[in-house]
């Protein structure tokens, strides 16, 4: 947790939610919303009862002190976890197959290929499992009725059938790859739809310097609130505002670029 000032965290969370909505209208985010809200509420509620650090006592619960500080810490913790999850949801949307392979094929080409292949195999395997399941159901081997042992056995049998079915086919896949020249010596050219332009480098530099300011500010304790042992003041100091402003641009950068495009192409 780098910044732990609640105002910082709330702003970051809101901005990231907007960024997420700008990707796909918040479709993925809505799927995660129940998990996210339950987890955050649990953390906020449980933390003050588990941890009795802090000096400002609200009340006693079974002889243990429940403090404002622990409560506050629970809130920052929950916000922090929510931020991480929202970032990962965006990450999943943005870093789709093509881009993932593009980035990782630079330094881990074989692993990247393997990951891509495994990702592609998953829907295929799911479809095959459905087919196998249909056949097995006709043969009277159900996953829904019977004792736990028979259910487990019939479920695993399906996966075993899937294994024997798919292993042979994997050899076909690799033969086809070989026929198309995978792994052969010599350089092959490939089309890459992504390249760095001068303006990309410029903005990368700008973002990096904003990041440095944020790190430096964080190191000096700006953007942070003292929670234990006693809740610190809420107020922002002068450099807090600078850090806050840098952080604001940094997190809303996708929104700014996307928004500008939207306005220009209207």
């Amino acid at each position: 947790m780098y910044f732990n000032h609640p105002i910082f965290l709330v702003t970051i969370l809101l901005l990231l939610i907007f960024v997420n909505i700008s990707h796909d209208g918040g479709k993925d985010l809505r799927k995660w919303l129940p998990t996210l809200s339950i987890m955050s509420t649990l953390i906020i509620l449980i933390n003050p009862f588990l941890v009795s650090r802090g000096t400002t006592i609200l009340f006693y619960f079974r002889g243990k002190q429940v403090t404002v500080e622990a409560f506050m810490y629970g809130i920052t913790m929950a916000l922090f976890i929510a931020i991480i999850l929202v970032i990962f949801i965006s990450f999943n949307i943005i870093l789709n197959g093509n881009r993932f392979l593009y980035i990782f094929s630079k330094f881990l080409p074989r692993i990247a290929l393997m990951i891509m292949m495994a990702i592609r195999f998953v829907p295929l395997m799911k479809r095959r499992l459905d087919e196998i399941g249909d056949v097995q159901r006709l043969r009277g081997m159900s996953m829904t009725v019977g004792s736990l042992k028979t259910r487990v056995r019939s479920g695993m049998l399906r996966i075993q059938i899937l294994l024997t079915w798919s292993l042979e086919e994997a050899v076909h896949v690799s033969n086809s790859m070989k026929a198309r020249g995978y792994g052969s010596e010599g350089k092959k050219s490939s089309y890459t739809p992504y390249y760095m332009e001068k303006r990309d480098w410029f903005w990368l530099f700008v973002l990096a310097s904003l990041m440095v300011v944020c790190f430096y500010g964080g190191k000096l304790g700006y953007g942070q609130m003292i929670i234990y042992p006693e809740l610190g003041p809420w107020q922002f100091f002068q450099f807090d505002w600078v850090v806050f402003f840098c952080m604001l641009i940094l997190t809303s950068f996708p929104l700014i670029t996307e928004g500008r495009e939207k306005l220009r192409w209207k």
Binding site: R110, M114, A118, F121, M125, L162, L163, L167, A170
Partner: peptide, 12 residues
């Protein structure tokens, strides 16, 4: 072959 097989086993 080995790359494809490992990817397949991971997917399974």
């Amino acid at each position: 072959r080995e790359i494809v097989i490992l990817a397949l086993l991971a997917a399974i």
